[in-house]
Design a protein around this nucleic acid. Sequence first.
RNA 1: CAAGUCGGCCGGACGGUCGCUGCCCGUGGGCGCGUCGGUGUCAUGCCGGCUGGCGUCCCGGGGAGAGGAAAGUCCGGGCUCCACAGGACACGGUGGUGGGUAACGCCCACCGUCCGCGAGGACCGGGAUAGUGCAACAGAAAGCAUACCGCCCGAAGUCGGGUCGGUGAGGCCCGAUUUUGGGUAAGGGUGAAAAGGUGGGGGGACUUCGGUCCCUUAAUGUAAGAGCCCACCAGCAGCCGGGUGACCGGCUGGCUCGGCAAACCCCACCGGGAGCAAGGCCAAGUAAGGGAGGAGGGCUGGUCCGGCCCGCUGUGAACUCCCGGGUAGGCCGCUGGACCACACGGGCAACCGUGCGGCUAGAUAAAUGACCGUCCCCAGGACCGAUCCUGGGACAGAACCCGGCUUACAGGCCGACUCGCGGA
RNA 2: GCGGGUGUAGCUCAGUGGUAGAGCACCACGUUGCCAACGUGGGUGUCGUGGGUUCAAUCCCCAUCACCCGCU
Length: 128
Amino acid sequence: MTDDSPETGFRFRRQDRLRSTQEFQRVYDRRRSASDAWLIVYGCENGRPYSRLGVSVSRKYGSGVRRNRLRRLYREAFRLMRPQLPTGLDLILIPRSPEEPTLRQVQESLVVLAGRVARKLARDATSP
RNA sequence: CAAGUCGGCCGGACGGUCGCUGCCCGUGGGCGCGUCGGUGUCAUGCCGGCUGGCGUCCCGGGGAGAGGAAAGUCCGGGCUCCACAGGACACGGUGGUGGGUAACGCCCACCGUCCGCGAGGACCGGGAUAGUGCAACAGAAAGCAUACCGCCCGAAGUCGGGUCGGUGAGGCCCGAUUUUGGGUAAGGGUGAAAAGGUGGGGGGACUUCGGUCCCUUAAUGUAAGAGCCCACCAGCAGCCGGGUGACCGGCUGGCUCGGCAAACCCCACCGGGAGCAAGGCCAAGUAAGGGAGGAGGGCUGGUCCGGCCCGCUGUGAACUCCCGGGUAGGCCGCUGGACCACACGGGCAACCGUGCGGCUAGAUAAAUGACCGUCCCCAGGACCGAUCCUGGGACAGAACCCGGCUUACAGGCCGACUCGCGGA
RNA sequence: GCGGGUGUAGCUCAGUGGUAGAGCACCACGUUGCCAACGUGGGUGUCGUGGGUUCAAUCCCCAUCACCCGCU
């Protein structure tokens, strides 16, 4: 099986994304999140040796082009920041404001917020 | 040169690094499966062949990858399914004429009305009798062109004045007013609109001031005053001519009330319904249940007829509703088409025909991207200028596919034409 | 993809081819030493936007914008 092999390098393929309602619902039901001015990040352990990404951008953040732009920024930030992110998590990114951030801002926010979510999850594991 | 009208086109360019999704290629690799042969074991196996089998993932290489509106979903089709789709009503849509087209509410040409000095632009059926209805306020009247006010003539009454008479009764005249009969052809401030509009209807003599006669003119009447008369324009009807047609032109004639159907409606034509979540296949998996209604039920949305399908005296079916339970994975449809470019021919044009060449996205928590550099364009600043610095580069993202319409849009390019000014 | 609805005063809503209303809120005055309550008076308006039909449009027609809802 090569599907579960941890990806090295800056790849971002289809199996690295959350793709079904059940997967999204599992992350939301875990109820662990962190946020700043740009992003809301939900997280949940996925039992795999790598992390996966889900993106949720609703219509209130603008037209189709604007929402596509946000999704692409999030995917690009996840792709480039993967070595600095915790592994074995499913992450969902939700925009916090309809303003369009720069790629650099998303990268910094993602690393900080993902680390915060990982610590919350670890605390749950040690003292349930 | 300046102002403007119409039509068409583009919608950042190049390079580098890191990525995403299909497609094609490979004696590349992993896993799973089929089949044939060989071999081995008690058994699971192992090796090789099958265009180097099939599927899937990875690796390497090649090539492709958002729009003119992909948008709004306002129309029209293709395609797919439905128990063939027939008729009547209802409902909805369209509306100058002739073409184009698969079709259209679209496009082209022409007709008419209105706007513009002009190039050009905007709009659209009929109801000069099929019917019903509406028109606030104002106004005499807004369907009876008739009534009303007013004006004129007459009659009667009342009052006042004058006069005759005897300062009487009463009569006559004048004026005001009321009622009434008749005439009416000035006028009635209004209003969006009141039986179309504009202009004209001469001169002389006599006169008892009513008129008579003469001349002239296209052209006068009443007791009085006129849309009465005449001319032209508009409109209408008839005839003639032109045009496939909408319609246009000419001649003649009578003087000839409307507005709104984007109010109901009438007329002609069109419309079966649903939509790729259509529809088909595979895999997985729960229940094969409970309750209520039920002799009829269903076939796109309405009614009726016709047609078709299921069921029909039952342990209670078809079907409808409610409760309970399960799945929401994969494949096909899925991109090659009323397609695009060029040339020639036909047509005023929309468009059509022929030839040659080309292949141009197929995603599905949904790809088509991110960053950097150089150049281009715009704005601001420094500067005489070359140049430099800063900021910005629109509207917007395919979801079965086409033809249109509408709406949004930084900046730019091309062509044709019109008006004005200047010069030769 | 298909279908439906709404937009009127600061707010919640009426309305109809003829110069647009109700309640609450608001403002001014009166009352009070002051406030509230009360009384009197008053408007609050490009009827979402732009065209068209009509003598006249919030109403009818077309386009457009924003919002809401339903089915699959």
